[in-house]
Design a protein around this nucleic acid. Structure first.
Lengths: 197, 197
DNA sequence: ACACGAAGCGGACCGCGGGTCCGTATAGTA
DNA sequence: TACTATACGGACCCGCGGTCCGCTTCGTGT
């Protein structure tokens, strides 16, 4: 393997940039109000360092995002119910969407920044692909679901970062209200419970 | 009224700009691949003329968008069924969403440009507000619907321009498939038909 | 301890795109 | 035809993402 371990100052700077960016995105009103030069300055680092470490703006935001998302990803892929794979689909689907919604509420600055990179569609990112295929797989375990692909897209669309920002940030909808609304919506999608016995 | 009628060359130029912009947005791959200077050049006009007529980039896109949307707006507000106000809600809701989807498919260049202005949220535009309140009103005519506001947002989210672009433009989903998918999705939202008699 | 190559650093620099300014041209009017 | 308000246009400005290159520092072999 041609992997060479990076120098200490490099990893230190990388961490400093991540911390500074995180803080800036959280404190500024809009993601586009934080410029790359801002981040570099806040981290006490030159611009080139920042670009060398993350490639471009999208890369930086992606790195921040993935750091926060990792625990959830793990909980979904190998954790216990109701998120983990050993959960019956009728419970798992709402649990997944609720987890995603909470993530978007708690990290809406990041989510907003990510979806608003402007450069490319949010639908072509790895993490969207992951959520979509996960949801799709769960939907396919349910009876009578034919359009699982589109349904997954539509459900994910209900948690779009700018919608969350609009309802929570602008109209001051509470976290619990949002969760209740999404839960109710999700419930309508589920096919009617087939009575057992 | 202090309204003064504009000069003839002004209206001619305005029309030329609209035509040129329409053509450019339709032909170029991505909305952000068409610059204001491009539009001005294509219209055979100086940049300042363009900004004087529309204020800024968003204003131009908005003007294009509203021109295309006007007929639909009219059909919804005073037209015959299934779009017009005299339609029972169970029929009208799918019809409205289908009309919106078709509009987004046919004008996805514009819709994409509009939602991707980057400057401000798509949720604070007049036209979104209009769709949302229209849908909400229809939903409230149905029994057992409690979260009509959120439900309206969620349904509209299923027709987001970048999602449409992803499915139709990138993955070559056909127009009819899209309409079928959205119709099926909408149907799940509707409360179960109460049997008459 | 030292030397030396490579990895990393930083900030001046570039290109591009949205938006403005102001001297000039023209439509409308008397 | 003379005169003014209105509109024109392209040179210009500014801010931002991204790059370049001469200098610094890390870390390794001796």
């Amino acid at each position: 393997m041609p992997e060479r371990k990076p120098r200490k100052d490099a990893v230190r700077n990388r961490a400093a940039v991540l911390a500074a960016a995180d803080e800036l995105f959280a404190s500024r009103e809009s993601p586009q109000a934080v410029t790359m030069a801002d981040v570099a300055a806040a981290a006490g680092v030159g611009k080139a360092t920042l670009f060398r470490a993350f490639g471009d703006r999208t890369g930086l935001i992606l790195a921040l995002h993935e750091a926060r998302l990792a625990p959830i990803g793990e909980a979904v892929e190998q954790g216990p119910p109701p998120l983990g794979p050993g959960t019956p689909p009728r419970e798992r689907l709402p649990a997944l969407l609720d987890a995603l919604l909470c993530f978007k509420i708690d990290n809406r600055h990041l989510a907003l920044a990510l979806e608003g990179t402007g450069s490319d569609s949010p639908y072509r990112t790895e993490h969207y692909e992951w959520w979509h295929s996960t949801l799709k797989a769960v939907l396919e375990q349910l009876p009578d679901v034919t359009d699982s692909g589109f349904t997954a897209h539509a459900l994910l669309a209900a948690t779009r970062a700018d919608l969350v920002e609009h309802l929570v940030g602008r109209q001051h909808t509470s976290r619990e209200q949002m969760r209740a609304h999404l839960a109710a919506f999700t419930h309508k999608i589920l096919p009617p419970q087939v009575p057992r016995g």
